[in-house]
Amino acid sequence: MRSYDKYFRENRLPHMWCPGCGNGIVMKAIVQAIEAKNLDQDKTVIVSGIGCSSRASGYMNFDTLHTAHGRAIPFATGIKLANPELNVIVITGDGDCTAIGGNHFIHGARRNVDLTVILFNNNIYGMTGGQASPLTPLGKKATTAPYGSVDRPFDPCHLAEAAGATYVARSTAYHVKHLSDMIFQGMGNKGFSFIEAITQCPIAYGRKNKLGDAPEMLKWMSETAVMKAAYDKLPEEKREGKFPIGVFYNSEFTEYTTAYQKVIDLAGGAR
């Protein structure tokens, strides 16, 4: 039906995500970016961890790897080092990336390995029953925070930038084309690219916090997300309750496989 359908394992569809879950929208944005980038299907590897988001690798028609919880970035680093020709895309969730795999995340960014990491941020551990994750906003309810979360959430974009990522961006499931464009640009960056995709979880997160159904949550994104250029011009009092989307940071630094090749050459070459 559509030219990007070949990037899906269509015999696996419909996927197992809940009705209204935004992960399907983000997965489509990823394959559209891959198509726009014209990546070779046989030279692209999708690596994912554990969680709702990470089930995406099972529906994508590439070489895929569904790894241990939080460990998608280390596996991906291994793949990239073993064969630097491959395009390695990491799909991870908010719990997988910032809690269980928090250390791997910052060290992947520190090394500046040429990966494209897409974080599906649904603010909750959906699959295991709605526990609070490190990205659950302050005061929002979860099954492990029935009176509202008292733990301050991370800003994963700030975290990635501070840790050394060379491309950092954010978008939402509402802004599908913008999201796809952010991922497209991330794939073009030679180094650690991090894209946070805000997505809705109407079942475990939305219901608990009375945020309405899936369309309501998407409308919330359209109302509260502001393009970075416009957000920067907003006075402090008008920023309340809003968040910026767009490219936050882009710089250049030696890519890890390039640096490692120098070590191999110095040591006499790989035999």
Partner: peptide
């Protein structure tokens, strides 16, 4: 309009945004 009924989960997103 082509609808793949077996894939639809009735989340209402399409109906709301139309």
């Amino acid at each position: 309009i082509l609808i793949k009924q077996e894939r639809c989960k009735g989340c209402n997103i399409c109906v709301s945004f139309c």
